Amino acid sequence: MLEWLVAWWDGVELWLVQLPYPVQVILVMAVLLPLSWGLARVIDRGVDGLGAKLTRVRDAEPPVGRRDGEDRKGTAA
């Protein structure tokens, strides 16, 4: 059923391992860095949204930043 996917992946893998090492590193970074950054952003937004929904404070917004200009210790920035 998924033989075409396995064959395609084997071809990509064979092509990648035959490249010089610096080119492999550049290709992996060009694909993995944006993918990882995007996934981390989605997870962060999801956790913030879920935290805002589960809080006891009505109409809470996700904790993207403080509006009053205070840092975490309660002093003015």
Rank of each mutant, 00 (worst) to 15 (best):
G51F: 06
K53S: 03
L39S: 12
D10S: 09
V25M: 07
A52D: 07
L35I: 05
V25W: 05
A7K: 15
Y21P: 02
V31C: 03
P63T: 06
V57L: 14
G65V: 00
V12P: 04
V12S: 08
G49P: 09
V47K: 05
D71T: 05
L39F: 14
T55H: 06
A30I: 11
A30V: 11
K53R: 13
S36I: 03
L32M: 15
G49K: 02
Q18A: 05
V25C: 01
V6M: 08
P22K: 07
G74E: 05
R56E: 07
A76E: 03
V23K: 09
L16Y: 15
K73T: 01
P34I: 07
V31M: 06
Q24E: 02
D71P: 01
V64Y: 15
E70T: 11
V17N: 04
A30M: 10
L35F: 10
G11I: 00
R67T: 11
D68V: 01
R67G: 11
Y21C: 04
L14I: 01
V42Q: 09
D48Y: 11
D68Q: 01
L39C: 00
A40C: 06
D59N: 15
G51S: 04
R45T: 00
M1E: 13
E70C: 00
L14E: 07
D48L: 05
D59P: 02
D44S: 15
M29H: 12
L50V: 13
L39D: 04
L50F: 09
M1Y: 13
L19E: 04
T55V: 13
G11S: 09
Q18Y: 06
V57R: 15
D48S: 04
P22Y: 10
A76R: 08
T75C: 03
W4K: 14
V28E: 00
R67C: 01
E3V: 11
R45K: 15
G74I: 05
V47Q: 06
L16G: 00
D48M: 15
G46L: 06
L2P: 09
V12R: 11
E61Y: 08
D71K: 08
Y21G: 00
R58N: 06
R66N: 11
A30W: 10
T75D: 10
R58Y: 10
R58P: 09
Q24G: 10
D68N: 08
W9R: 09
W8A: 04
G74Q: 06
V57N: 12
G49E: 02
G74C: 03
W15L: 10
